[in-house]
Design a protein around this nucleic acid. Structure first.
Lengths: 209, 209
DNA sequence: GTCTATAGCGAGATAGAC
DNA sequence: GTCTATCTCGCTATAGAC
């Protein structure tokens, strides 16, 4: 409890560095030397603290998977918000998260595809309990007058619309915005209201059919 | 022109094998030995035909990027189809493509994030000309009475809704379907009509506001 | 064209001084 | 705890026989 020095302790420095490198390069692409350089320490120290590259990676991945799953499930159960407000809240916060952590979506997608069993392995620690989630979606489906099947598609569609603009940044930025970073960033900011509007319009549009 | 033997020539066998391995493991994760085994030939032959791992990879990536970009732009310009039919056509064909090549989305996303400059490098050969695309979106926006900005979001939303269910398969299958492959596959098949309906409802729903 | 054998290097991991 | 030096192995790539 005496933070006299501005620098954190070695373990924290390693974790910060490993996070930055692994998130950008993945397990296969990252180098232990690179992480050591980023942390300003020696390569051997990484092994002293975390034994192996794999163990260090899993420490990072576990934490980042927690970030990746929306922390907004309590909000969806709130009695004080209309379904419309819940959707707006969810989308805005989820996109804001990725604006702060823009490499997170591509990182998680890369690693779960490299080793799919890692999802089941850490799903519990990520704060996702399948039964609870199923229950929550059931309640929300009733509220919106949707079947469970429609609810699953809706959920995936909303999440897709939030995540893909980040996971596909290199393509979107190049193809749609002629590689202009500023235009791409503006697009991301507009997207918070656009996606919510789009979803809400769709739910209203069902009435027309 | 004498296909007496069922087996293809060596170069084709290498390309087929390399495609399977690279798509699942990426450039960093793939091993030349693995590709040689998959092709049923010796490791040295890979270098004889393609000089280096990088060159072999780029040959594969270039081709797969072509597949990744929808070949449906001519369809979007057709005068015979209503906007609604164009959207249905686009979504159905795009999802069908990924049902046939389920690892393609994760592969492309992984590699463009590893090396973003690869997009600009191959965008021309992938049959995407930015000016033409911009023009096409402009026409389509007019047809749907959308601003260009709204049109870009719409495009990204549709593509997101088609791609993410594949790129995020390990997560979706585990979290929503308790790791049941059959349920996940059913979900994908439903999705072709669901996404088109969802988008069309949204465009209609705008009228209600 | 296709193989075996091996060069050469880079990376993860460890030994041991301080 | 932190460092330097080194071990060991796996991988890309090449040499050279057939």
């Amino acid at each position: 409890m005496k933070p006299k020095k501005i620098e954190k302790d070695t373990e924290s420095r390693i974790l910060d560095a490993a996070k930055r490198i692994f998130i950008r390069k993945g397990l296969d692409g990252a180098r232990m030397q690179e992480i050591a350089d980023e942390a300003g320490i020696n390569k051997a120290l990484l092994h002293y603290y975390f034994r192996s590259k794999e163990k260090l990676f899993l420490t990072i991945f576990r934490e980042e998977l927690r970030n990746f799953f929306p922390r907004l499930f309590p909000v969806l159960l709130s009695k004080d918000l209309t379904p419309e407000m819940k959707i707006r809240h969810f989308v805005e916060n989820y996109i804001d998260l990725f604006i702060k952590e823009p490499f997170l979506p591509a990182f998680v997608l890369r690693e779960v595809n490299r080793n799919p069993s890692i999802v089941a392995q850490f799903i519990g620690e990520a704060g996702i309990e399948p039964e609870k989630l199923r229950n929550l979606l059931d309640v929300f489906a009733t509220e919106l007058n949707l079947t469970m099947n429609e609810m699953l598609h809706l959920m995936v569609t909303i999440v897709s619309a939030c995540i893909f603009p980040f996971a596909g940044k290199p393509i979107i930025k190049q193809v749609l915005f002629d590689d202009n970073e500023g235009d791409y960033q503006k697009f991301l900011n507009h997207r918070k209201t656009y996606v919510a509007d789009f979803v809400i319009h769709s739910l209203k549009g069902r009435l027309l059919k």
